[in-house]
């Protein structure tokens, strides 16, 4: 049965959240969630790259790889696409909006190594989505990532000023919080 677009959206944002349920993209999730501001910047950049990468990889998979029977090249080709795309975004952003470029700083090139971008692209193919569904799934996945990033950075800003036992302060309490949040997200299971 074909999933409706709305179902895909809800599923990928809440039920199968890429960070909390599929554990992809953990590195930027922990690395750039210190402050709400940087988290937002990262969220936007990832949304843009994931969506574009999903569409392009979908087209390449169906036009080139499938027709030539080269499905085993999927991973390396997709990575090539993502890396080029990130490079392109960086170039374009530098010209069009230097302000945004300097605000995002090192996070832009870091998206290349964000496994969520590759994960979304590959899962799109595995699920047998159409191009429209792929786009919706990619947007949903990035929004889910965005949501996770915003939630954890809001928590971390509070935890910075909270009186936390020394042994737990900093990274340990962040990991515990992330774990609890992940458990909380299992509450959405069965929604779709």
């Amino acid at each position: 049965m074909e999933m409706s677009l709305f179902a895909i959206m809800v599923s990928t944002i809440l039920v199968n959240n890429y960070v909390f349920a599929r554990f992809l993209g953990i590195c930027p999730f922990l690395g750039v969630s210190n402050k709400m501001e940087t988290a937002t910047g990262m969220g936007f950049a990832v949304t843009f790259v994931t969506t574009l990468a999903s569409i392009i990889t979908y087209i390449i998979q169906n036009t080139i790889l499938n027709t030539l029977g080269l499905q085993y090249l999927q991973t390396i080709v997709f990575i090539l696409v993502i890396a080029s795309l990130v490079q392109f975004v960086e170039l374009a952003l530098k010209k069009i909006s230097p302000g945004l470029y300097s605000a995002m700083g090192v996070f832009l090139p870091l998206i290349t190594t964000n496994c969520m971008v590759l994960g979304v692209a590959i899962l799109n193919i595995q699920e047998g989505f159409t191009l429209l569904q792929t786009t919706v799934n990619a947007v949903g996945a990035s929004l889910g990532f965005f949501l996770a990033l915003i939630l954890i950075s809001a928590l971390r800003e509070k935890m910075d000023i909270a009186d936390i036992p020394e042994a737990l302060a900093g990274f340990p309490i962040t990991l515990i919080a992330a774990g609890l949040m992940s458990i909380a997200f299992t509450g959405f299971a069965g929604l779709v």
């Binding site: 390449i60 080139i64 790889l65 030539l68 080269l70 090249l73 390396i76 080709v77 090539l80 696409v81 080029s84 490079q87 392109f88 170039l91 374009a92 530098k94 010209k95 069009i96």
Partner: peptide, 20 residues
């Protein structure tokens, strides 16, 4: 396929770097 794609992206990026 791989070489072609790599070349294609390389050319596109170098054009982009001239444009931008």
């Amino acid at each position: 396929v791989l070489g072609g794609l790599g070349l294609l992206f390389g050319v596109l990026l170098s054009i982009a770097s001239k444009v931008f």
